[in-house]
Design a protein around this nucleic acid. Sequence first.
DNA 1: CCAATGGTTAGCCCTTGCGCTAACCATTTC
DNA 2: GAAATGGTTAGCGCAAGGGCTAACCATTGG
Lengths: 112, 112
Amino acid sequence: MAQYSARLDGVFVALADPTRRAVVRRLGRGPASVGDLAREFPMALPSFMKHVRTLESNGLIHTVKSGRVRTCTLNRERLALVDDWLAEQRRIWEERTDRLEQFVTDPEENRQ
Amino acid sequence: MAQYSARLDGVFVALADPTRRAVVRRLGRGPASVGDLAREFPMALPSFMKHVRTLESNGLIHTVKSGRVRTCTLNRERLALVDDWLAEQRRIWEERTDRLEQFVTDPEENRQ
DNA sequence: CCAATGGTTAGCCCTTGCGCTAACCATTTC
DNA sequence: GAAATGGTTAGCGCAAGGGCTAACCATTGG
């Protein structure tokens, strides 16, 4: 559970940057090398690498180096944590809606 | 579109902090005053207020002050932007899966 | 009308985040 | 084996983020 929220936190932090979201988006189409990815962004390579590292350390992507090129792959499972969070959120407010409906239907049971 | 991504960015930034996510969660059960909300978190009120302001300026919540108490309400629509983003992400990689399947089924059409 | 309550403003501290350059490997390629 | 290519390391600058205290309204309750 502490595990869960630490991970969730990492995921949200990682996604809070537009560059990183764009990378995730791009990797949705399939794996790519750091260089190929970097070319699409207006920043120096070391700066871009930091984003890659952030994504990796938060589990959103996975990278492997073979020879001199590092290839990045999306990790869809991690992204699913966001789905889960949203689902829970929805669950919470649906419960609330239910209570409200109950109240309208049968106010006696809700006194006090 | 620029509007969209600016908003999306704000939403993710707002959700990148555990305190703020907890507030969103809490407000899912219904509106609450700043004071009531703050009581649940181990920080001074002014610090907490900043989070409230961040949530508000990014459109995730809506607040109204009546008398001396400010009441916060969740804005579910804004949260739906995350849903949309995830949906698009899914769309992208399903397209990819389709292409891969196509390739396996009928490699001739995919040469070069 | 005085005190308590609920927020707000101002300003400070410290850490983190994101960008940069310069220099440096380590593989390929010719 | 020298040059080009693809990443990596180190270190710096600056702005923003998240926390704090102190002091200050403004409403409300006795």
